[in-house]
């Protein structure tokens, strides 16, 4: 059975409310989403909470998935959850300031499990929030530039330029 066919069956099972199918969905996606949230927040506790929130949200919303790219659909939800987290954290402040605050936290954030991994996290923290999010979205969702542009409602040229500049900056700072 192909991976796509298998995923379709799991999604159908989830839509029927089968606990076992959700369990399999958690096994397939938890690593990618955890990485996505961790790279955006630099905090394991927050990533734990956001990942839990995502799967609970999936239980509520899976019925509204009408086909197409499941990864695109589910990463849109994950992205919204992250933005909700930023808004809650901000409590009325502007989103941009919230991102700056988060970037500072990322840069200062504690000791990572592995030194090189932490180095990447520190350098990611130096990128602006929007660029970092686009890079992480592309890396973890495995979506094309076209799909990311659609998901974030941005022109594809803007997405391309931001991801390129961000990755170039990351490459230089990591050298």
């Amino acid at each position: 059975m192909t991976k796509n066919r298998e995923l379709e069956q799991i999604i159908a099972g989830c839509q029927r409310g089968e606990s076992e199918s959700f369990s399999r969905l958690v096994d397939i996606y938890s690593g990618r989403f955890y990485g996505y949230f961790y790279r955006l927040t630099g905090n394991r506790t927050i990533s734990d909470d956001l990942l839990s929130e995502l799967f609970v949200k999936l239980v509520e919303k899976i019925g509204s998935f009408k086909g197409g790219s499941f990864d695109g659909w589910v990463f849109r939800i994950a992205s919204n959850i992250f933005h909700d987290f930023l808004r809650a954290k901000q409590r009325g402040k502007k989103l941009l300031e919230g991102r700056k605050e988060l970037e500072l936290e990322n840069a200062q954030s504690g000791k990572a499990d592995d030194e090189r991994g932490e180095k990447l996290q520190v350098h990611l923290g130096k990128l602006d929030g929007d660029t970092r999010e686009l890079i992480m979205l592309r890396y973890y969702s495995q979506l094309s530039f076209k799909e990311i542009a659609k998901l974030r409602a941005k022109p594809i040229g803007t997405v391309l330029a931001k991801v390129h500049r961000g990755l170039k900056k990351l490459r230089k700072s990591m050298e």
Partner: peptide, 12 residues
């Protein structure tokens, strides 16, 4: 850039 991200996997 993609390769750097691939080499530095995030915690699981």
């Amino acid at each position: 850039g993609d390769a750097i991200l691939g080499e530095n996997s995030a915690p699981v």
